[in-house]
Simulated scan of single mutants.
Amino acid sequence: MRALLVVNPKATTTSGRTRHVLTHALASDLKLEVAVTEYRGHARDLAYQAATDGTMDLVVALGGDGTVNEVVNGLLAHGPSERVPRLAVVPGGSTNVFARTLGLPNDAVEATGVLLNALEERRERVIGLGKAMTSGLPDRWFTFCAGLGFDAGVVGRVEERRMAGRRSTHALYVNEALRHYVTERERRRAGSITLRIPGREPVPGLVFSIVSNTSPWTFLGNRPVYPSPRASFDTDLDLFGLTRMTVASTARTVRGLLGRTAPGPRGRHVVAYHDLRHFTLVSQESVPFQVDGDHLGDRTDVSFTGVRRALRVIV
Rank of each mutant, 00 (worst) to 15 (best):
R2Y: 01
R2K: 14
A3I: 03
V6C: 04
N8T: 03
T12F: 05
G16R: 13
G16Y: 11
H20N: 12
A25S: 15
A27N: 11
K31A: 15
V34W: 05
V34N: 01
V36M: 10
E38K: 12
A43D: 00
A47Q: 05
A47N: 07
Q49K: 12
G54P: 06
M56Y: 13
M56A: 13
M56Q: 14
D57H: 09
D57M: 02
L58M: 10
L62E: 03
G63E: 02
G63Q: 03
G64H: 08
G66A: 09
G66T: 06
V68D: 01
V68T: 11
V72K: 03
G74S: 09
L75W: 05
A77C: 10
H78N: 14
H78D: 15
P80G: 04
S81E: 04
V84Q: 06
P85A: 07
V90W: 03
V90D: 00
G93S: 07
S94D: 07
A99N: 02
A99C: 08
P105I: 08
P105W: 01
D107V: 05
A108I: 00
T112R: 01
T112V: 08
L115Y: 04
L115V: 06
N117C: 12
A118K: 05
R123K: 13
R123E: 14
V126C: 15
I127E: 02
I127N: 02
G128W: 01
G128D: 02
G136L: 08
G136Y: 09
W141S: 01
G147N: 05
L148N: 05
L148D: 03
G149D: 05
F150K: 02
F150E: 04
F150H: 05
V154T: 04
V155Q: 08
V155F: 06
A164C: 09
R166S: 15
R167Q: 13
S168F: 15
Y173E: 10
N175V: 15
L178W: 14
L178H: 11
Y181A: 12
V182Y: 13
V182M: 12
R187S: 14
R187W: 12
R189K: 14
I193H: 03
R196L: 10
R196Y: 02
L206F: 09
S209D: 07
I210M: 11
I210K: 00
V211T: 09
V211I: 15
S212D: 07
S212F: 00
T214R: 03
P216C: 11
Y226T: 08
P229N: 12
R230N: 13
S232T: 05
D236A: 07
D238T: 07
F240P: 00
L242Y: 06
M245T: 07
T246S: 15
T246N: 12
T246Y: 10
A248C: 10
L258I: 09
G259K: 13
A262L: 11
R266W: 10
H269M: 07
V270T: 09
A272V: 03
A272W: 04
H278F: 12
F279I: 02
F279N: 01
V282C: 05
F289Q: 02
F289G: 00
F289L: 08
G293S: 09
D294C: 07
D294N: 08
G297I: 07
R299P: 00
S303K: 06
S303C: 10
T305D: 07
V307T: 08
L311K: 04
L311H: 03
R312F: 07
R312Y: 08
V313A: 09
